[in-house]
Design a protein around this nucleic acid. Structure first.
Lengths: 228, 228
DNA sequence: GTCAAAGTTAAACATTTGTTTTAAATTTCT
DNA sequence: AGAAATTTAAAACAAATGTTTAACTTTGAC
């Protein structure tokens, strides 16, 4: 009998669900690094010091494990990265934009703490699984709307929705690029962009984006802002 | 005997290299869509109306076919997308930035003409093969340096190299995002971003980036440009 | 201590995929 | 036309991978 189905209640408080837990953690690590297709159940099992069959035993199949990993990282991320991104609510638009970008970058670039959640999101962007629809709704769209709120404030009341939308994508695009195209960035600047660069990167992207959004608010034409 | 080695010269003008050609074209299509790992030789052979073994016969193995496809698309792209991006050399910075971005987007987003080259580049960014080093040097870095030239002009003479570098990555990141994260973008805006949107997109990204770069030239601080 | 359920393990199975083999078909050249 | 080289096709092979099976061990209650 399978352990995935809970018979009646928690009538049997399992003392050693250690294996299931190790599989979840190993799955998070491997899926985040190689994506759903690139990850193999054997590798995950090995990393978890478990047998291959345990994946099937606890989660039905690879897809089941993946779904469980997603859910697991969702709840972890929600408590680790609170919605307010750890900054006072009363802060101004520029500060909130910077905090958003910095938090976003930390989630996907930081090597230290488990950043599986952010990396899994980016993996789904690049090579979607059937889980993408759900992921967009519960994880990506909320993030996007939070960003849209900030941008809308920065762009002023008269900003067109379409313009706000495109600005949000521009900002997310800049952030995601450093994870997505890391091999290329490394070669272009002949230096591995480490976690130490995140602060500088966040600084640049917020400044870059702030100038752009603010400029649009001023009704920036194609040649606006030039006074050389 | 294999057909990959050219015996002495072009002494035997082959009348029917049709199969080899079809394999190259099918390979470009499939590799561009699924990446090196995701593409299967069987699928490529089927698309080319050829036998599976023909891949091995003409190119040695899958890696050989991939290398040939890269070289093939390089030369195609070079004549199809001239280095000056089809705009008069005397044009100003803003116009050249717009032309660069528009051309870049067309290369990776246009569905019509074969855009394998651009898509292959992005695939290599996301999931590199041993060919990446070569690709960066012959295809990506020249593009990057061309962009850097434009940005340097827009940012003015006093711009720090590091700042120019980060701006270039910001611009490339915005462009690549639409191919890389297309599934997410589609869901966020609930509409498939088609080739028709490229013009609008190019317009947005150039304006966004121009404002940002120009703002930096003015010594834009974190809260520069706001006068609401 | 016994026993059934839960958990674990090694092995087998089925499928996919890259590659090779072998022979047949086709083309090329004399 | 006929021999030699080239090209194509079907099948076999080997390795990787998701999944299942069946035996074995541990756990916890009686």
């Amino acid at each position: 009998m399978n352990a995935t189905g809970n018979e009646k209640k928690g009538e049997r408080p399992p003392k050693r669900i250690a294996t299931r837990d190790r599989l979840l953690r190993a799955g998070g690590e491997i899926f985040a690094r190689y994506g759903f297709r690139g990850a193999t159940v054997r590798r995950i099992a090995r990393r978890a010091h478990a047998n291959v069959a345990s994946v099937s035993y606890y989660f039905g199949d690879k897809k089941g494990l993946y779904a469980a990993v997603l859910q697991y990282t969702f709840s972890s991320a929600k408590e680790k990265y609170p919605p307010d991104l750890g900054l006072q609510q009363g802060a101004g638009g520029p500060a909130r934009l910077h905090a958003f970008i910095r938090s976003f970058l930390l989630r996907i670039l930081d090597d230290g703490r488990p950043t599986w959640h952010g990396k899994l999101m980016v993996q789904e962007m690049a090579d979607p699984t059937p889980a993408l629809d759900h992921i967009v709704e519960v994880a990506i769209r909320p993030l996007y709307q939070q960003l849209a709120l900030i941008v809308r404030e920065l762009a002023g009341i008269g900003a067109a929705e379409q313009s706000v939308h495109l600005c949000c994508l521009s900002i997310m695009g800049q952030c995601v690029f450093y994870l997505h195209a890391r091999p290329v960035v490394t070669r272009l600047q002949k230096r591995e962009p480490g976690a130490a660069d995140v602060e500088q990167l966040a600084e640049h992207i917020s400044r870059f984006s702030l100038l752009a959004v603010a400029g649009m608010a001023d009704g920036g034409a194609a040649d606006a802002g030039r006074n050389g």
